[in-house]
């Protein structure tokens, strides 16, 4: 039985990877171009006006934020779009009929989503390095926050994909939750440049910690202590995993 558990999981994971790989132009290349456009426009417009950290030019400051944004958005897009497409076309049945456990389903979807987020993020980082020099102060922190961020958004995408009955509901989730939370998390600025009131609002945004901690990995400077950010990351991941696993286990919206 042990062998079949891992075979089922491995197949679903591989299938999820193949799904985005087969349309990589749209799932990997397109988001990389978008991130580079952000870099081009914001760096060009704001480079001479904004100084975020001492000795860190604005273009350089921008890179980790853009990389993290690419990781988060693409991890979310992968699991959520896979789920909603399977539900809309009805082929979700092929996953519901076999003896896959809720844990296998969760891990396969979330890990595949994380891989897509990390592939796009790595692509954005590699291309921006051609134009902008970026230090790598603490590679381990970079790894922790990129993996954690990708997993959190992968789980969030899975949750949203299970919950949404229609593509518009998913689009609403993406436009009214994911996008504002990532944009307002300090991708383009340091929260220290905000008024105290807005600073405390930013601290209530979990995405802020992902980007801030990730940025610490590059510059060894951050708005909050990276250990606090790791704690927020772990709590968020555990909570999302618990909710999503409970949904999968009960068959919420999938098996009724």
């Amino acid at each position: 039985m042990g062998a079949s558990i891992s075979a089922g999981f491995r197949t679903l994971f591989a299938k999820e990877l193949m799904r985005f790989w087969k349309v990589s132009f749209q799932t990997i290349l397109a988001p990389m171009v978008t991130a580079l456009l952000y870099l081009l426009v914001f760096a060009h417009v704001l480079a001479d006006r904004v100084q975020v950290y001492d000795q860190v030019p604005y273009q350089t400051f921008l890179v980790p934020g853009l990389v993290m944004m690419a990781i988060l958005q693409n991890a979310f897009a992968n699991s959520s779009s896979s789920l909603i497409q399977s539900k809309m076309t009805g082929n979700i049945i092929f996953i519901l009929l076999p003896p896959l456990s809720h844990i296998e389903m969760f891990l396969a979807y979330v890990l595949a989503a994380a891989v897509r987020g990390l592939v796009v993020g790595a692509g954005v980082l590699l291309v921006t390095l051609i134009f902008v020099p970026v230090p790598f102060a603490h590679p381990l922190w970079i790894a922790v926050f990129s993996l954690g961020g990708a997993a959190i958004l992968g789980a969030m995408g899975l949750l949203a994909g299970i919950w949404a009955d229609k593509v518009d509901q998913l689009a609403a989730f993406q436009n009214f939750v994911i996008l504002p939370f990532t944009f307002l998390s300090g991708v383009f600025y340091s929260t220290h440049s905000l008024s105290p009131a807005w600073q405390s609002v930013s601290r209530a945004n979990p995405f802020f910690y992902l980007i801030d901690g990730f940025r610490y990995g590059f510059f060894a400077v951050s708005d909050v202590n990276p250990w606090v950010s790791v704690a927020v990351l772990l709590v968020a991941l555990a909570a999302l995993a618990a909710i999503t696993l409970a949904m999968l286990r009960s068959g919420y919206k999938l098996r009724n």
Partner: peptide, 27 residues
């Protein structure tokens, strides 16, 4: 189970579809 609805996964070929389905069942 052969479902009533004519469902399929547009990302894959016939053989890939069957290989994937086998894998889900541990084969």
């Amino acid at each position: 189970v052969v479902p009533q609805e004519l469902v399929f996964d547009p990302f894959f070929s016939v053989r890939e579809t069957l290989r994937i389905q086998s894998g889900y069942f541990g084969l």
